[in-house]
Design a protein around this nucleic acid. Structure first.
Length: 292
DNA sequence: GTCCAGGAGCCAT
DNA sequence: ATGGCTCATGGA
C-alpha cells in the first residue's frame, strides 16, 4: 500500500495507508489488543516503543507519531494493511452464523502484535473481563513501562514493560497491579523470557504445533492463551483460541441440544473453519460479544 | 448479595 | 481423558 511521509518542522511525523475494508474501531476494540484508547475520532496507543495516533478516513488510515521515524514498515506490519481480507473472508465457511458475523464485522482485521506484550497480556486474561484486563495492563505499563515521547498536550504513555523489568518485580508489587493469582505466573514467565531472549524471539519461526508446545510450558499458559499468541503475535491464522464466548457460540450453533467437550470442539474447529480459522474465530468472537 | 469473566493447575475418578 | 475445585478481583 502507498504511504506518504510528511514530516517537516513539526515535531511529529505522519503517514497515510491506503486500505479497503479496514474497520479500525472493530480492529482496535475487539479484545485482541488492550491498550488502544479512543479520543474522539482518533485512537491513541503504543506500537514498537512509539506513541501512535490513528484515525480512519475514506479508504485510508492516517497515522502520526510524536517524533520523526525512519520509515513506516513497523506500523504497516502491526496493522496488517497488506493482508488480503477478501480472500480471507472467502475462505470462511458459509453457514448462517458465519454469514451474520461477516455482515456485522466486515473490516475487522487481525493485528500483528509484539510477542512478549501479547503473551503477558493474555496471561493476565484468565477469568477476567476485557475491561479488567485493560486495567491490569494499564497499571503495569504506568508503573514499570518506560515513558514514551508524546505530543504536547497529550496524555502520557508508557511502553509495555520489558520481561526483564517485570521479572525484577516482587510478587507483591505485581499483586498491587491487581493481578491476583496471576502475579506469580507472570513473574515466572517474565523471568524465563528475560533469560532466554533469543530463544523466545525464534518461537515465531517454528511450525505451529511446535510453537504451541513451547508456549504451554510457561506457567499460567494453557491451550487457550497459547492459541492467542500464535494467532495475534505470530500471525498463524489457523490458530483457534476457544474461550467461553466461542465455546458457547460453537456449542449453541453447531451442536444444538448436545453437550460437547472442549476437546471435541477443538477437533471440530480445526476441521471446519479452514486455513484462516483463527481469523474466523475473531469474527465470531466480536460478533457474539457485541450482537448477542 | 450473586454471578461471572477471552483459564489454568491440580487432584480424584 | 474427564470432571470438580480453587485461585483474586471487580463489573454487571
Amino acid at each position: 500500500m502507498k504511504k506518504t511521509a510528511a514530516a517537516s518542522a513539526a515535531p511529529t511525523a505522519a503517514a497515510v495507508f491506503l486500505v479497503q475494508d479496514y474497520r479500525l474501531d472493530f480492529t482496535l476494540d475487539s479484545g485482541q489488543a488492550f491498550r488502544w484508547r479512543r479520543h474522539g475520532e482518533a485512537w491513541e496507543g503504543a506500537v514498537g516503543g512509539r506513541w501512535v495516533r490513528l484515525q480512519a478516513g475514506p479508504q485510508r488510515l492516517e497515522a502520526s507519531t510524536a517524533a520523526p521515524v525512519p520509515g513506516w514498515d513497523w506500523l504497516a506490519d502491526y496493522l496488517q494493511v497488506e493482508a488480503r481480507l477478501g480472500a480471507i473472508l472467502d475462505s470462511f465457511p458459509t453457514d448462517d452464523l458465519m454469514r451474520r458475523a461477516i455482515a456485522a464485522c466486515r473490516g475487522l482485521r487481525l493485528l500483528r502484535q509484539d510477542p512478549w506484550e501479547c503473551l503477558a497480556s493474555f496471561l493476565l486474561s484468565s477469568t477476567k473481563q476485557i475491561v479488567q484486563i485493560r486495567q491490569m495492563v494499564e497499571l503495569l505499563c504506568r508503573r514499570y513501562g518506560d515513558p514514551l515521547a508524546v505530543p504536547p498536550g497529550t496524555e502520557p504513555m508508557n511502553a509495555f514493560p520489558t520481561a526483564a523489568r517485570l521479572a525484577a518485580c516482587s510478587e507483591k508489587e505485581l499483586r498491587e497491579c491487581k493481578l491476583g493469582f496471576r502475579a506469580p505466573y507472570l513473574r515466572e514467565t517474565a523471568r524465563w523470557v528475560a533469560e532466554h531472549d533469543e530463544a523466545f524471539g525464534h518461537l515465531a519461526e517454528l511450525p505451529l504445533a511446535q510453537a504451541r508446545e513451547q508456549l504451554v510450558q510457561f506457567p499460567g499458559v494453557g491451550e487457550k492463551i497459547a492459541e492467542c499468541v500464535l494467532l495475534f503475535a505470530f500471525g498463524m491464522s489457523a490458530a483457534f483460541p476457544i474461550d467461553v464466548w466461542i465455546a458457547r457460540g460453537l456449542g449453541c450453533h453447531y451442536f444444538p441440544g448436545r453437550r460437547v467437550s472442549a476437546c471435541r470442539l477443538r477437533e471440530f474447529a480445526a476441521g471446519y473453519f479452514g486455513p484462516h480459522a483463527g481469523y474466523a474465530q475473531q469474527y465470531l468472537f466480536h460478533y457474539l460479544r457485541t450482537q448477542s
